[in-house]
Design a protein around this nucleic acid. Sequence first.
DNA 1: GGGCATAGTGATAATGATTACCATTATTAG
DNA 2: CTAATAATGGTAATCATTATCACTATGCCC
Lengths: 149, 149
Amino acid sequence: MVIIITMPRKPFKTLEARACQAARHSKRREVIFEVLNSGHSHLNAEEVHHEARKRLPGIGIATVYRALKFLCGCGQASEFIPADGVARYEPGGSRAHHDHLICTSCGRFIEAVDPAIERLQEKLAARHGFKPTRHKLEIYGICAGCAGK
Amino acid sequence: MVIIITMPRKPFKTLEARACQAARHSKRREVIFEVLNSGHSHLNAEEVHHEARKRLPGIGIATVYRALKFLCGCGQASEFIPADGVARYEPGGSRAHHDHLICTSCGRFIEAVDPAIERLQEKLAARHGFKPTRHKLEIYGICAGCAGK
DNA sequence: GGGCATAGTGATAATGATTACCATTATTAG
DNA sequence: CTAATAATGGTAATCATTATCACTATGCCC
Ligand SMILES: [Mn+2]
Ligand SMILES: [Mn+2]
Ligand SMILES: [Zn+2]
Ligand SMILES: [Zn+2]
């Protein structure tokens, strides 16, 4: 299940390789990977740290930040920054791209994706001679649960 | 041209009123409003400060932050936070909502809006029982100018 | 298994954007 | 003009994130 690439025999040739390939296996990185894939998603670094501590009490916050950045570089996690400016993380890799409906009342993140919107975004970019590499769509509002109250 | 609301006679009744209504006219606020509406848009607070200083050399950075927040509260400016986490500002009010194509090479912001996408976003939200109040669509990639090089 | 080079780690200092604080200044009703 | 107080500027505080550095863990070699 854990697919952290490890152990290049020779020194890294490029910065990218160094940034995205682990030279050694690491228990902490594995734990942080597991936390991301353990159900509750959209955690910020502090919350990841809190969860990771349950499994590895001594783990430091700096290691959490390092591992999250590393996993993002590997495509094993993805980062996004909502309106409050605090980065949040979710498992990446095989998980498909999706957008977020963010409830401003309870803070919940609803994941959604509309192929038609994705297609129109490509067209919109093309119309401006723009080559898109990634995009971020966040819809803020009130979720069904909060509206019902 | 400057439409800063001023002068409530009585003490503010609510926090919102206090946040969005100026009790007194202020030359600095006016200057910052003018900077936002003076052409080059998508400035961050530091850049607004730099521009404002040309007109009012003594103006402080704290005042810039205060005025920007105030203008956003009035609907006279809007704030958005791109991937680097540093808030940027543009004139609000009568200007219509728009999305951004952001060039990761030169940093340029291209403004665009596609009514079909807007409509589909509403539908997507509705499908999840979600009442949207605002949204943010940012497409990152390479602009025509940078691609041509 | 032990040695070695070095990637990884944890504590903490540094950073950078933004906000809070407070003494001073500017604005405006009367 | 004067009094009341909103606005301001300098700067300390805050908060998330990154850099630093001495120390530890990993894994290839023999
Ligand atoms: Mn998600
Ligand atoms: Mn814009
Ligand atoms: Zn909710
Ligand atoms: Zn460009």
